[in-house]
Computed example of a mutant assay.
Amino acid sequence: MKYSCVELNDLPDEILLIIFKKLNNLEVLYSFQGFNERFNKIIHDSMFTSRLSFPQLSFKKCIKKFSSDIILNRFCSQILLTIRTKIKCLDLESESMRNILDAADYPNLYALGLYNIEEETAK
């Protein structure tokens, strides 16, 4: 039996979309943003960018607070700026709300979900 070496970049766009749809869209954006021009085009599809749910960001569950701050900073300083016009819905929690809302203008945002937030903070 012969073994062949197939890399992720060798797969057709259709297969990559099938794979990426099975993953959390925030993780896809974080992991592949800036990887190459082709991947940027694929991950900027509306299926990954129209609704972002930060309370479900699984990175926070498995890494230290310091690392999650680095991830949030990258989202705010790089990723959100490139997809801000495609975002239609944001789900936020009090811990990251200010950073994400201050990171960019979201001209097409029509829904905002707030989770784990004090009433006074929401006001």
Rank of each mutant, 00 (worst) to 15 (best):
H44E: 15
D45I: 01
S46V: 01
M47Q: 05
M47L: 06
M47I: 11
T49S: 01
T49M: 01
S50W: 01
R51P: 00
L52V: 07
L52P: 09
S53V: 11
F54H: 01
F54K: 03
Q56G: 12
L57E: 04
L57W: 07
C62D: 08
C62V: 09
C62P: 04
C62G: 11
I63G: 08
K65V: 15
K65W: 09
K65P: 12
S67K: 13
I70C: 13
L72W: 09
L72M: 15
L72V: 04
N73Q: 12
S77G: 11
S77Y: 06
Q78K: 12
I79N: 06
L80F: 01
L81T: 10
L81V: 04
T82L: 12
I83A: 02
R84Y: 08
R84S: 07
K86V: 06
I87A: 02
I87L: 02
I87V: 12
I87S: 00
C89L: 03
S94R: 06
E95K: 08
S96V: 14
M97F: 14
M97P: 02
R98F: 10
N99W: 14
L101P: 01
D102Q: 14
A103N: 09
A103G: 08
A103K: 10
A103L: 05
A104W: 08
A104T: 07
A104S: 10
A104G: 09
Y106M: 03
P107Q: 05
P107C: 08
P107E: 08
L109H: 08
Y110C: 06
Y110L: 04
Y110A: 03
Y110E: 08
A111T: 06
N116V: 10
I117F: 13
E118G: 07
E118V: 04
E118R: 12
